[in-house]
Write a protein that binds this DNA or RNA. Structure first.
Lengths: 233, 233
DNA sequence: CGGCCCATTGATGATTGTCAAAGCTGGTGG
DNA sequence: CCACCAGCTTTGACAATCATCAATGGGCCG
């Protein structure tokens, strides 16, 4: 299991605003984020952009290149960052001998697929309030799993990025933050967010499974959008 | 390569409306669709539903169960169907000895991820007209790859299903079909659709990369939402 | 043949987008 | 070290897209 290290090239530094890879780049590697946050996005032929995700330390990025041999989206560092490059064909080779690595790769890919489904639910079936609330809860959850506070976060991305990710305009995002603040749910100071009422956020996000007249199926643990362990072991 | 067959259990018949699997079911297998169309969907705690995709013969379904050990969405047959069950742990075992199978699995997962990104773009950045046009073009493209006509299709799903998939109401879908028909782009007769002008559909869908003032990057081949080969070889 | 589900169409309204202006912040260069 | 500038954020007024509510019609299956 320690031999996983053998796949990992040395660390690679990326400055804020630089591309880790671009749409159309030849796919070679996955990247384990060591430090910093990234965003991924794709564009329409006519220039509009959709942010497809925000990734943080401990997460793996680059799956979009596996199928076509080229990356299908852009990945940009939202702040100075470090990644470990993991050549994918070496990972494939090694995973033939190391079942745990093989299984780990499958879980990474499967997790990305489930995450994407959560985003579809967000974009296709939720109101602006619900989207923003869900977004914030997801972020703090992931940060908390990394040892940060459960009620405070610093947004690494702009309102425009958030809006693009959530299928909203930056103005709607800003207004929603302001309204949540007015309702006593948040404290918003530019990119510093403090959650005053997690329960309140859950409520406006309709994420309470208070079982009122919800689906009778008992197991709803699969609703978690993303929850990535820090280590790759 | 012929030994791929050894993973495949015998065929399994599913009636229209039956579940291939449900949210929460223990994950055991992927399923290769032999006949018929399926839809996959997830639900919010409060009962709303988001259709996450429509799958047809030749496509593989079930990836959502890999990560959690349980399926995170429902899969329903839209008509009487047949699938081949492929136990996933057997696939993992075999793929250690058969690199081409290993690679194939990775491509399947990677393709699903890219497809999901396309749906995010659809839901997050496109108007109702664009969504409907993109949806139809994607369907005929996949059908055409299976030997069907490029300009005719029979919808296997309801307007409500389409609406849920596209993040619209069934009424908006119906109205958009009617308007496209009035504009001479389509011929709509319940679920029978005839495309009178593929170019017109592309236009209303803003899928023309007429390079007018589009992004300077030349390689835009990655915009294809899904394009699955029939054989699993 | 009847009932039920699905589709179509209309009227109305709400949520969210668009356009605009002003204030704040952080970084850069003098 | 301070000041300025550029980009980001906030807030307002207005408009448009799309959802909601409602009623009718059509087709398929039992």
């Amino acid at each position: 299991m320690k031999r996983i290290d053998k796949v990992i090239d040395k660390r690679h530094a990326i400055r804020r605003g630089e591309f880790l890879y671009r749409q159309g780049d030849v796919f070679e590697s996955l990247y384990a984020i060591r430090l910093g946050h990234f965003k991924t996005s794709i564009g329409t032929p006519d220039g509009r952009v959709q942010v497809t995700g925000f990734q943080m330390a401990g997460e793996v990025i680059g799956f979009d290149g596996i199928v076509g041999g080229r990356h299908s989206c852009d990945a940009v560092a939202l702040e100075d960052a470090q990644v470990c490059k993991m050549p994918f064909n070496r990972m494939e080779e090694l995973s033939r001998d190391i079942p745990s690595l093989q299984h780990h790769i499958h879980r990474l890919l499967g997790r990305e697929i489930v995450r994407d489904q959560g985003v579809m639910l967000l974009l296709g079936a939720m109101s602006a309030d619900e989207r923003v609330a869900t977004f914030l809860l997801n972020l703090v959850q992931r940060l908390h799993a990394r040892g940060f506070a459960q009620t405070e976060l610093v947004l690494r991305m702009t309102r425009e990025d958030i809006g693009s990710y959530l299928g909203l305009t930056l103005e709607t995002v800003s207004r929603t933050f302001s309204r949540f603040a007015a309702e006593g749910i948040l404290l918003v100071k530019q990119r510093q967010i403090q959650i005053l009422s997690t329960a309140g956020l859950r409520r406006v996000g309709n994420l309470d499974d208070t079982g009122a007249d919800a689906a009778p199926r008992p197991l709803a643990a699969s609703e978690q959008v993303a929850n990535v362990p820090l280590t790759a072991s």
